[in-house]
Design a protein around this nucleic acid. Structure first.
Lengths: 186, 186
DNA sequence: GTCTATACCCTGATAGAC
DNA sequence: GTCTATCAGGGTATAGAC
């Protein structure tokens, strides 16, 4: 998991994994028939960790559903800072690194995106009263993922969190504009 | 250029390039000392082609600066459709594939993003009268890139243009909200 | 189930004749 | 400048003793 995140899938060799995990070749291949099976297991682990490893820590002490969305983005900001702006979303990076992924792999990436946007959608459902009735909540949730991924990409390429911050500020403007518009109409 | 786009940098071998280009090893290495030099040349070619290869065709017959932004996004939509939703932005994909890029490579990726956002910024400058005076045009231009990259990533992962379309629709809402807010204030 | 040793292939890069 | 042949190293995966 760590090596695929740090170096990417293609650039991580089995030998890297064996030495990092202090496991021997025979043992690894006993449990995982091939390298791709390891990738699938990693993606499943990310998928199952969205709640306990990502959302719960990010949302501790925060109740407002819209603020939870920005708290999650703040968590990514912290990851960017903690890695000297070389952070890449592990799922997004794999999604772009693997050009013709095996269907099994692509399905696991989809499950990760689905789980992430479902959590955002829940927040939006809870804030429904403050949002335009016509707003497509699913599309808005996907948009948050869109912005996060695009912002992480730029922060990393420029090695500068400010690119992430500016994108999040624009997203904030977007949400404020949505609520303002409703107020105007009322 | 084509192979790096189709397969990624790491998964494209020199042998692939030699057979695709009908060139022999000795000739290639005469002009390009190593594989990375080929990558740098490709990135420079993309950078220099932003105007003639990307913007000019996308903007033919379109004068309104805000519509030019969405015309550019429509061009990406066409690329997604033409590739059966396996399209990846060549720069964005490299930005996430290469985890510790050589400074020379990273600088070329930055130049590509800079050139792209500068063009969007020009559009926004031209539409300045319709936008809130307080709007940070540079940040808004970067936001368009953010959305494009995030939307392309999802369309590809889900193999479904609808994810791209929904993200662009949200961006449209964002721009409309910006102009509406100004109208309200006037 | 775990160990070491290794098969076999493909990689980027080079040598040296022409 | 271009050609063919090849090198040295590292890649995934396997064999077979224990």
């Amino acid at each position: 998991m760590e090596l695929f995140w740090l170096k990417g899938y293609g650039s991580t060799s089995i030998a890297d994994i064996l030495s990092r995990s202090q496991v021997n070749s025979g043992s690894l291949y006993h449990y995982f028939p091939g390298k791709q099976d390891l990738l699938v297991a990693v993606l499943e682990s990310y998928r199952d960790g969205i709640g306990p490893m990502l959302l719960e820590p990010a949302w501790a002490g925060i109740d407002d559903p819209i603020e939870r969305i920005f708290a999650l983005l703040a968590k990514y900001r912290q990851l960017i800072v903690d890695t000297d702006c070389s952070y890449g979303c592990p799922i997004g990076s794999l999604a772009l690194e693997l050009h013709e992924p095996d269907p099994v792999v692509r399905e696991r990436m989809v499950q990760n995106f689905d789980g992430w946007t479902a959590a955002i959608r829940d927040c939006l459902e809870q804030a429904k009263g403050r949002l335009p009735r016509a707003l497509d909540l699913q599309a808005a949730a996907e948009f948050v993922l869109t912005v996060m991924e695009g912002a992480v990409m730029q922060a990393r390429t420029y090695r500068d969190v400010a690119f992430f911050d500016r994108a999040v500020a624009q997203l904030r403007t977007y949400f404020e504009a949505l609520t303002v518009r409703e107020t105007v109409g009322a």
